[in-house]
């Protein structure tokens, strides 16, 4: 055994985490507030849809996923005060009116023969956007200073990816005809337009600075991403 009095680094030799990250405390809180908002809208919609879908496997899946997103919302709610936001409701909002419009369109279908439209909105449009934004946050934030957010992102992304896969498989099982393929594509296209206008679940900059800018360390559209090395 090594000499217990010998000095050791607090980082194990294989731990390559570094301090710099792209988000300030404020920027992280802003994003987390938007995440909480979209998770809330999603779990509410999934809960409401349960009664409207006749397919038993879809019904139980929506019930299960409803809780997943509620739990994600709870994690983000709890994170906000830790990010110095003592009035979390102030930040739990849509990033812009475009995302509100997207959610209104997403949650519009009700009739029992619109299961494809409901699922396409969630699993082919919204969840991919959420996974993208969360993955970007995970890659961009400081792995040391923002570790609690990273831990939550890990749990949440695990759920999102599993749920996305499950939802996509449900869709593939439900879509059987050329007309249904067209319906799904039409619905996806309508909603893609809206969420693209919104810039993603956290607004413009959901995936960092736009591709026309020079790189992740430059000021993006939000002008709130900064190097956080100290």
């Amino acid at each position: 055994m090594a000499d217990p009095s010998a000095p050791r680094s607090p980082f194990a030799p294989w731990d390559r985490r570094e301090l710099p990250g792209l988000f300030t405390v404020e920027e992280s809180a802003r994003r987390v507030g938007h995440y909480a908002w979209i998770e809330m809208r999603l779990f509410e919609a999934l809960g409401g849809w349960v009664a409207t879908v006749p397919e038993l496997d879809v019904k139980t899946t929506l019930g299960r996923h409803c809780y997943h997103h509620a739990w994600h919302a709870e994690l983000w709610h709890k994170r906000l005060p830790e990010l110095r936001e003592m009035r979390p409701d102030r930040l739990i909002r849509a990033p812009n009116a475009h995302l509100e419009a997207f959610v209104a369109a997403l949650t519009e279908p009700e009739a029992p023969d619109l299961t494809i439209e409901k699922l396409v909105g969630v699993f082919r449009v919204l969840l991919p956007r959420k996974i993208a934004a969360y993955s970007y946050h995970l890659a961009a934030t400081s792995r040391i200073t923002d570790a609690p957010t990273i831990r939550s992102l890990g749990f949440i992304l695990d759920d999102e990816q599993t749920d996305w896969q499950e939802g996509e498989m449900l869709l593939q099982a439900l879509i059987e005809t050329d007309e249904e393929v067209a319906r799904a594509a039409r619905r996806q296209s309508e909603l893609e337009v809206l969420i693209t206008r919104a810039g993603g679940i956290a607004g413009p900059g959901s995936l960092g600075p736009s591709s026309t800018s020079s790189g992740p360390t430059s000021s993006g559209p939000t002008s709130q991403t900064v190097g956080a090395a100290s």
């Binding site: 509410e44 809780y67 997943h68 509620a70």
Partner: peptide
């Protein structure tokens, strides 16, 4: 309360 009801959704689905 909604969180509790969402949890209940999962339980009832199960």
């Amino acid at each position: 309360l909604k969180l509790d009801m969402a949890r209940q959704c999962w339980d009832e689905a199960r």
